[in-house]
Structure formats: structure tokens, C-alpha cells
Design a protein around this nucleic acid. Structure first.
Lengths: 150, 150
DNA sequence: GGTGAAACCCTCGTGAG
DNA sequence: CTCACGAGGGTTTCACC
């Protein structure tokens, strides 16, 4: 991971379809050298995958929601994490410091869908306390990459 | 955006390097039809860009942090948003409902870096209250796509 | 919109430095 | 580790359905 690797990653982040010749011209390397570096970056796991950054609104997921969760005392954390992994609406699920145990980020079609989501969580006996926040707007929104439906 | 478009997006999300022929074989279309659909999805903005999903740890950004922010009464929101867009550590910045006004997500090398970040925010006269949470682990982490350093 | 074929370009081995 | 070259395959465009 030298300066050139970082530059290549920069370029691929912006446009992963750029040709090796093009990238090579920018960083001052031959296409095959660039190819070899990308192969290594992929093999070593620095690049996890080539993917597409989508527009959530165009996908019909206009509402971004954050839910704080404090699990019930007797909740099975493993099955909760399994639920989080399986649920396609859950984009992120982090175990965090502070008075809440988990922070979940999800995208839904519209706000009413959140209710069903919380009801589901409750039915599975996960919930202690929760608090739900809706994003009104995002000045920096990050990439939206669909969860792997593999 | 019919069923086939969605299927193509699914496949590209998992692996944007799959060939048009391969995708066509899966969805039952010729390579050129798939190409035309991807061209349309890109032109209409559903696909914002082809990019790479990186391993933040391999990039040296091992710590994921969420900062809740309540701006000062007299803070200039426009310049705050501009700051958020410019700062490369800030992956997301959302205006949210509830008692906090903004939620910021950032990745840093290590926890001590957060202090400098907050000091910077304070020096720029943005801060009212803040609360910082660190992610201990992430059962669903979402894609990590580097911010465009264009 | 979709198809098939042809031209073009890119990718990815190989071998040499 | 990098480069040059060539074969193979992928993408792109076109006329046509």
C-alpha cells in the first residue's frame, strides 16, 4: 500500500470503469502494472468488490432512518445479529458505546414502514427501549450499495 | 425500472465486473440489451457510479464513530454543511429529527483523532452540545466507499 | 425495446529485463 | 516488480426486427 496504490484506489472509487491504460497514464505506470496492483489489492482484501453506487430515491427508498436499540435483558444477541444480517432494510447495525447497545440504519419506502419493522423486532422479543430518528436531509449521504442478496 | 432492471442491479451490486454476456445469460437477454439497460440506468441516475467497496481496516481506518451534534444558536448552517462535505473523514452527515440536529458518521485511524476533530468543530463556532459514540463492532457494516476526492 | 454480427478496444497471460 | 507484446474475450455500435 504505497502512494500509487492509494491513487489507484482514489481513481477506482470515482469510476471503477476507467481502463487500465487510462489509470496507468494518470499514475505513471503501464497498464499491466496497474492490473497487477489491482489484482493484489483485490486478493489481499483491500478492495472487497467492484460494485455500483445507487440512488436510493430512484430505487424507491426515500426514507433514511436511525433506530437506537437497547436489547431486552434476556435477548439472544446472536439471533438479533442474525436478524440484522438477514433483514434487507437494515443497511448497518453497530454495537456502540453509551447508553444504547445498538445503532441501526435502515432505508424504507416511507415512514409508516418503520412501524412494522419495530413491531417485528418486538414480536421477536428483542426490544427493551428504542428511539427512532428520521433523516430530514443529508448533506453528505455516503454511497448506497444494495445489500448482497446472494 | 422493471423486474429485469432490478435483477441487473442486484447482479452488478454483488459484482460489477461480471460480463454483459454473463448477466444476459442470467436474466435472459442478449449482451447488447443488457448493455443498453445499464446505459439507461446510468443515464437516468439510478446507478450513480461504478465504484469499489473497500476494507476500512486495510485502509488504516479502524475506528467508526458517530457524533450527535446540536449546533450553536448562531451557527451558520450552510458553512457547517460545507465543512461536512469538505472534511474527508466525514462519511455521512444527516439532518435528523429529535433533540439533536445533526448526526455525523466518520472513520478515523484511532480514537484520539476524534478529539482533534471536535476541537476543530468547536474552533469553527459550530458546536452547542455533542455526544460521541464509538462502534465496538458492526454485525452489518454496509459498503465503505471512499469519498470522492475530485 | 430486443437481436445478432462485426469492429474495436481492453484485459490478461507470457517472457524478458 | 515492471514492462512490452500478443492472443483471447468483452464491449460497443449498427442495421434490422
Amino acid at each position: 500500500m504505497d502512494e500509487i496504490d492509494r491513487k489507484i484506489i482514489d481513481l477506482l472509487s470515482l469510476d471503477a470503469k476507467r481502463s487500465l491504460a487510462d489509470i496507468g497514464g494518470t499514475v505513471g505506470l503501464s497498464p499491466s502494472s496497474v492490473n497487477e496492483r489491482i489484482r493484489r489489492l483485490t486478493a489481499s482484501g483491500v478492495i472487497k468488490r467492484f460494485t455500483v453506487d445507487l440512488d436510493p430515491a430512484a430505487m424507491g427508498l426515500e426514507t433514511l432512518v436511525f433506530v437506537w436499540i437497547a436489547l431486552r435483558e434476556d435477548a439472544d444477541e446472536a439471533s438479533f445479529r442474525d436478524f440484522a444480517e438477514t433483514n434487507p432494510a437494515i443497511l448497518e447495525c453497530h454495537h456502540v458505546t453509551g447508553s444504547w447497545s445498538y445503532l441501526i440504519k435502515l432505508r424504507v419506502v416511507a415512514a409508516p414502514e418503520i412501524e412494522g419493522f419495530l413491531t417485528d423486532l418486538k414480536a421477536r422479543k428483542f426490544l427493551g427501549r428504542t428511539e427512532t430518528l428520521i433523516a430530514l436531509s443529508s448533506s453528505v449521504s455516503g454511497a448506497f450499495v444494495q445489500k448482497g442478496s446472494s
